[in-house]
Design a protein around this nucleic acid. Structure first.
Lengths: 244, 244
DNA sequence: ACGTGGGCTGCACTCAGTGCCACGCTGTCG
DNA sequence: CGACAGCGTGGCACTGAGTGCAGCCCACGT
């Protein structure tokens, strides 16, 4: 078939070294049009390549599976995250660092709000895509956990703490991300994720004291009746320790 | 083929109401033998049904996909967990409750140590199985989170906290479970998971004070220099509040 | 003008998963 | 005792994802 001419066979890039082949973008665009129009499982790879005007074999050259076309930029983002963590200064607060690393993911989503929202609704409906997304999220979480292993490995239960912190940070991030996606990209994504990660950081992180002006010798005293729920006590501590 | 007679066609259960069809167990056993011998991807469903001596169509009647045969009892365990959470008394500490719910999963693994260890090595090698396992774990986590939603939904950021706590509990549990699996089932699984969940509980949970004998009017005082890492302060609090 | 190499295509094949129907067994009712 | 209904099973054919292979076209270098 390949009815229309459609994209005259990748023209002459001549000198242009740049430009990743537009064929990849064409596949993503065609796939998404069909997925939202008639559903993921109702769309075959043949449908996609027909609309994109390329051969079936080329699809699998660019995407190892049909699912991968739905998450075209996660590989790059994961690499960015690993690089960001590897570039962390030695004395950085590890929990803050992994929170900042998580923000990279949010930024990727925020770069294409419409695209992200469409994909969100797709993954919500299709179990196979949900599973794929989970494995992607898992790789992010592993990257954070491995970084924390290296920093906390010395402490007793360092690995356990690293795993738990990574999971909590990812959960907090995803909570904010999901609520932003549910708002169809209208809410302030940055504020929501800051709030959520702030919670995770307050639970696990070394509080960033002393603040600039305070004397580090100041002493904070907390008194609590036995029987007070721990979270309530902890909240008091956090307030007392928080920068003014 | 169906060479040998092999299991005389589900005999006469006559009055026996019990006994789930042995055909299911035969499929699981055959599948695992082949998976361990020659690998998951190198084993076809036809190989499995040939070894089990049943028709190919029956495989998919018992397991919706080839991956499901690797996790034959997770559905039941998930149902158990939901029932356990639904049966929680109103005044139970929610964090302790979800920790106890997580222990149900460990118990399931511990029921068949050799089987669990074999499966662990399988899922470690095969990406497809890893993705499947992640989606299973995700459903456990959702069950915990939904329970916590109902209990913490009232508090500010209740949903966020619920998501983070559920993720942390699951991560702590999985950390202990993995280390037990790596020990090939030799370590004390219960102790490891108690320790890991104790950490999660200490971070998020209401400490179970007052203990039986102590007067609830007792007062605990904590003093810390500004600049002390929060986790260190929290550890002191935990120690002070812990039952004697 | 000719050879070469890389990317694209088409083809054929394997295998997972599904719908359909026929068979045999069991228990039941006339 | 024989007909019948229900159900679990097996066999068959089909769709669609994913892969290996061989040919082809086009750009480029010589």
């Amino acid at each position: 078939m390949s009815t229309s001419s459609a994209e005259p066979r990748r023209g002459a890039g001549t000198d242009a070294a740049a430009v990743r082949p537009p064929i990849r973008e064409a596949l993503v665009a065609a796939a998404f049009r069909l997925f939202v129009e008639r559903g993921y499982e109702e769309t075959t790879v043949d449908d996609i390549v027909a609309l994109a005007g390329v051969g079936r074999r080329s699809f699998f050259r660019y995407f190892p599976s049909k699912e991968d076309v739905v998450f075209p930029d996660h590989e790059r983002c994961l690499a960015d995250m690993k690089a960001f963590l590897a570039a962390a200064p030695e004395d950085a607060d590890p929990v803050r660092r992994v929170c900042d690393a998580a923000r990279l993911v949010l930024r990727m989503y925020a770069e294409n709000p419409e695209f992200s929202v469409q994909r969100y609704h797709l993954t919500k409906k299709v179990p196979g895509l949900r599973a794929y997304e989970l494995s992607v999220v898992w790789r992010y979480e592993r990257a954070l956990a491995e970084y924390l292993h290296a920093r906390l490995g010395g402490r007793p239960d360092g690995i356990l703490h690293a795993d738990v912190i990574a999971a909590a940070v990812v959960a907090a991030h995803n909570n904010a991300l999901r609520s932003w996606l549910r708002s169809r990209g209208r809410d302030d994504a940055g504020a929501a994720v800051d709030h959520a990660l702030g919670y995770a950081q307050s639970v696990f992180g070394d509080v960033p004291v002393p603040p600039r002006g305070a004397a580090p010798e100041d002493v904070v005293v907390v008194a609590a009746r036995r029987g007070t729920p721990l979270w309530q006590v902890v909240r008091e501590i956090e307030t007392a320790f928080a920068r003014d």
